[in-house]
Simulated assay, not measured.
Amino acid sequence: MSDILSDEARHLLLEPLLKNGWALAEGRDALVKTYKFDSFVDAFGWMTRVAMWAEKWDHHPAWRNVYKTVEVELWSHDLGGLCAQDAKLARKMDSLICQSC
């Protein structure tokens, strides 16, 4: 199991994500991002690709899909905050977005 991110790890792992459209959630230790796709099929296809990685890594996002928009929230439920796995999954989500373009 991972630990909550230290201040040093937080800066190292989160800074690139924040520059790539992720944000820190208000009032809690979580990352949030909204993805917009060309169609529902593109959004759902991306979610399916992400789901395979999330299952493989046993680290699952909280997300909401409405038509061609997917709102994502990442945090480690059992830790009550962000850990390295959250940053890893966020990076994977961003890398899979180009496959939906």
Rank of each mutant, 00 (worst) to 15 (best):
E71A: 15
D94Y: 03
Y35W: 14
D29C: 09
K33C: 11
S39D: 02
D38S: 14
D29Y: 05
V66C: 06
D78E: 14
A84N: 07
Q99K: 10
R64T: 12
R28F: 02
L14H: 04
H11W: 01
T69S: 13
V50R: 01
K19M: 13
Y67A: 07
G80C: 08
L13S: 09
T34D: 14
R64Y: 14
R10W: 11
V41K: 14
M1C: 05
I97G: 01
V66S: 13
A43Q: 02
A9M: 10
A23D: 07
I97S: 13
M93H: 02
L79M: 12
W53D: 10
R64K: 08
L89N: 03
G80Q: 08
P16N: 09
R49W: 08
W53P: 00
F44K: 02
C101F: 06
A54G: 14
A87C: 05
T48M: 12
L12W: 01
K36V: 11
R91E: 15
F44C: 03
L82Y: 09
I97T: 12
I97H: 09
M52Q: 11
E73S: 12
S39L: 04
D58T: 07
M93L: 13
L89R: 03
L12G: 00
M47Y: 01
F40D: 03
D86E: 09
M52P: 00
F37L: 04
L74R: 04
G81V: 03
L13K: 11
V32C: 13
A23T: 12
D38W: 00
A84W: 02
G45M: 06
V66H: 08
R64M: 13
V41L: 14
L89C: 04
T34M: 08
K92A: 11
L24R: 08
S95T: 13
L18F: 07
F44Q: 04
W22Q: 07
S76T: 15
